[in-house]
Design a protein around this nucleic acid. Structure first.
Lengths: 118, 118, 118, 118
DNA sequence: GTGGTCTAGACCACC
DNA sequence: GTGGTCTAGACCACA
């Protein structure tokens, strides 16, 4: 896995996990890979991987069964979706539109730009 | 001036300066307030203010006349606009549209949401 | 390490780092001492040391791995050599030769003087 | 007059005065332009010009007749030549040759480079 | 442990 | 007055 520089690595791992859940690759009660497996596969310090697990555990998206591993919570899909939605609408959207207007773009233009760049 | 927490203060000062230039409040060859003035007005340590000046000097947006002060460079407007545009298109736009699609929004919906929230 | 007075200390640290690279004591991908280590060893404030690191990072000579440390970039040797060569040819050389001619020295004389003084 | 950025302006004025003397455009007992004239002609702050005068007065190259102006001292030519020689041999020469060797240049190469660039 | 940011305050060179 | 450098020391995010 490759990481960008503008976000902490553990956040990028969190995002990856959320993606898995939103895309229904991980469903409720699935056991997800261990901290060590994640650390090895992503070439990341185990502490960094652990942080992502902890964060999602605190948010109630994962739960931990001691000595066994981490599992996807009941309702994780909805929880993730809600969290992402809130973050998106309250934080990202206003900033994005402000920038957009200041730089003189329109929504339609950006949509084209995005599809061209994909 | 009030500062948000998720960006370093000196970056927020940089952004403020860029805004001044984009909004044509500061034009080429204008002398801008001194490091100390900015520091006092923004209630910030002079070193913190200086970092913003230095950053923009390296980018070629400001230039320095020794013992006199900082001035807006020729072509600063275009340079700022270009910088902001690049940052927007290469970093913010892809992330925004990815999120948008994953959350099932359309551009039109978001535009309404934004205008409602303003 | 001893510092001369006519150049800022952080520039002298930069020069020291460049020397290490030019003399192949530090090679691409080597981890270099931490900011704190440098600060202690050179009896300098960590902020002063950090400035040198930042400068070389912006020049692309060093890169940073978050939470780990600074590393020598690929191609750092060539980059440093190019930078130093340019500086030498564009700035130091013309001034030196102008002075030399004005004072009535010849290259051969100076070479002897230098070797005698070494 | 145009000033470079790597030296203080007043030093560049000093250098200009020394040039005038070394090239025998100004001779002993010549009255040189007033501080104000210099400041206007060189588009420089009068204080900056004054500093150059003071410096050369302290070195004994100029002398001041109150209410009349500044004059070139007896023996100014020799004094300037000696000062320049010392500075050149003790400071500039060693640094220049060290850089030269580290960058792998020879004297002959540099001579060609200089003449080509002139 | 790493680097990054910020503050407070000093001192200096320069204009 | 201007900016530039440096120190001392604090706090934080990150790996």
């Amino acid at each position: 896995m490759e990481f960008s520089d503008n976000k902490p690595i553990y956040v990028q791992i969190v995002d990856y996990f959320c993606d898995q859940i939103l895309n229904k690759k991980w469903k409720a009660e699935d056991r997800i890979p261990s901290v060590r497996e994640v650390a090895v596969k992503m070439e990341v310090n185990p502490n960094t991987a652990m942080r992502a697990f902890h964060y999602l555990q605190e948010e109630g998206v994962l739960y931990n069964q001691r000595g066994v591993g981490y599992f996807v919570s009941q309702g994780a899909y909805d929880k993730v979706k809600t969290l992402k939605r809130e973050e998106f609408i309250k934080q990202k959207l206003p900033e994005f539109f402000r920038d957009m207007k200041q730089l003189g773009f329109t929504c339609a233009e950006l949509e084209k730009l995005y599809e061209a760049g994909e």
